[in-house]
């Protein structure tokens, strides 16, 4: 149980962080590109970015807590 739980913790946080990294990169990249092209739309683009990043990042943060639970059970 111990080693399996540790592997599960590593997988859950690793894959969560990988997905969030890719998602965040896409969101931030496109938003910065949009703001550079049209600075007057900064407010709208930032709000959309906030919603997107908040959603993308919720999953790895929860996966970190899950990893913590698995680590505690190991």
């Amino acid at each position: 149980m111990g080693a399996t739980a540790l592997i599960a913790a590593a997988i859950v946080f690793g894959l969560g962080a990988l997905g969030a990294g890719i998602g965040n990169g896409l969101i931030v990249g496109r938003t910065v590109e949009g703001i550079s092209r049209q600075p007057e739309l900064r407010g709208t683009l930032q709000t959309t970015m906030f919603i997107g990043v908040a959603l993308v990042e919720a999953l790895p943060i929860i996966s970190l807590v899950l990893a913590f639970i698995f680590y505690g059970e190991a």
Binding site: V28, T31, V32, I35, S36, R42, L45, Q46, M49, F50, V53
Partner: peptide
């Protein structure tokens, strides 16, 4: 996000 937007 506000800092990144201001910088962009």
């Amino acid at each position: 996000i506000d800092r990144i937007g201001a910088r962009a």
